[in-house]
Design a protein around this nucleic acid. Structure first.
Lengths: 242, 242
DNA sequence: AAAATATTGTGTTATATTTACACAATTTAA
DNA sequence: TTAAATTGTGTAAATATAACACAATATTTT
């Protein structure tokens, strides 16, 4: 087999290797203050028209992988610089019945109130509660399950939860987010102490005016500390919750 | 663009999408009792003949991604059921100058004494100390750096270090392994207590006869507990070491 | 206007974990 | 027999975690 490789300089190609379709599929998480949500596509195109799926697309010939991920997220949300993270490449032979396609799967976290509604509408995308999501095409159900697992893992060790909240937020809001992610109640007092001990939050001096009872302090993330302490957030959630 | 999708049933193909070469590249870690090592290829084939690279291969048309990873590892080591983990897909446009190729990168942990020497010889593979590895082709240097980062992260939270040791091992051996992974000295007494508190080790009743001083107890891994407690190993190494 | 209700902010104590450090036992070589 | 190297185990102080209680604020009800 190796004798053929001599040809590569002439042809500028690897001979005898199969080129395969490369897709990207993205699990977009959002949080409405109560529930964890997914931005899902009601497909108005083939294949599997009429069914639900993740947002995806194909990697183009002259496009960096990371650029493709950003492009797909931009087309869906109208946002740039979204937090996203590759989770796995799905590569079973029959996973897409149309044609052999591998899919590089990633999850993204966005502020549900900040994205462009028109972009979502153009893609026929809807926010669906994670808990009562519909069945998805192909192996997209497995992708969502894995994404949730990875989100739980990562959010226990690093301060990525803030990506799902607005610029200014209260500690009770942050707690409700973590309770949604781990689907478990957390002790208010211990949660607050733990969060404040990270020194990642800056008191804006403002209070949440939406509240109907006692108004909570609005904080914002200390972005410099967020960068430098990204790896020092460990042990936020106990093992048993992950 | 979407009007073309109607064609997919007839052609059994997605029209207007680019098929791309899909490679897999593997960082194989080993431990000789002193140093962390990599199994690297001295290339006796084009392209970049004569230079050093990771072991790799192309995904075939009718091959599951996971099967391909196992095939590549088997060709290199003669071993099956190796512990491996996907770390990232490298997909910059020009990363392989011969032809657009994305590479799904993963790392593997093997017992350096158990693999098949002939298999390695057939691939022209050599064990090289991680610390004084040669320059590698393409983006393989970045792959190794990322693999080390991921190994450190994972090994701090889960008991994967055992994959690098022989069936029977001593606690001092295990400690030297962790010291090699994190490139830092660890306190012998705290290390021992922490490891034993996991209850993952079973005393074989034997002692290490290789030692020139006091002979250490040989342990083996409790594989059932290893499975069930894989996620309960957290906080083994302190954050600052990762 | 006062009381009731819901929610927020902070404090305390018991328990568990982590860190720093010391000494006795085993084996070989001098 | 002694010295040197290494292994196994112990202890106390500091830190972190988990469980729990009460006071303060804002709205709604009476």
């Amino acid at each position: 087999m190796r004798k053929f490789y001599a040809a590569y300089y002439i042809m500028n190609k690897y001979p005898h290797s199969t080129r395969i379709l490369v897709a990207l599929d993205c699990i977009v998480f959002g949080f409405d203050g109560e529930e964890l949500k997914l931005l899902l596509i009601k497909r108005n195109f083939e294949p599997e028209k009429g069914k639900w799926s993740l947002m995806g697309g194909f990697l183009e010939a002259d496009e960096d992988l990371e650029v493709a991920a950003n492009r797909i997220l931009y087309d869906l949300t109208g946002l740039k610089d979204i937090y996203f993270e590759e989770i796995k490449t799905f590569g079973k032979v029959g996973r897409d019945p149309v044609e052999r396609t591998i899919s590089i799967c990633f999850f993204a976290l966005i502020n549900i109130h900040a994205h462009n509604q028109d972009s979502a509408k153009a893609q026929n995308a809807y926010w669906i509660n994670l808990k009562n999501r519909p069945n998805l095409i192909f192996d997209h159900n497995s992708m969502v399950e894995l994404a949730l697992e990875k989100l739980r893992y990562k959010a226990a060790l690093h301060p990525i939860g803030f990506e799902l909240l607005p610029e200014k937020f209260t500690i009770p809001q942050l707690q409700r987010l973590y309770e949604a992610i781990y689907d478990t109640p957390l002790d208010r007092r211990n949660f607050s102490r733990k969060i404040l001990s990270t020194k990642l939050l800056i008191d804006t001096g403002e209070k949440n005016q939406n509240s109907t009872t006692k108004k909570a302090i609005l904080y914002r993330l200390d972005k410099e500390k967020y960068q430098s302490q990204f790896n020092a957030f460990h042990n936020f959630i106990s093992d048993s919750m992950i």
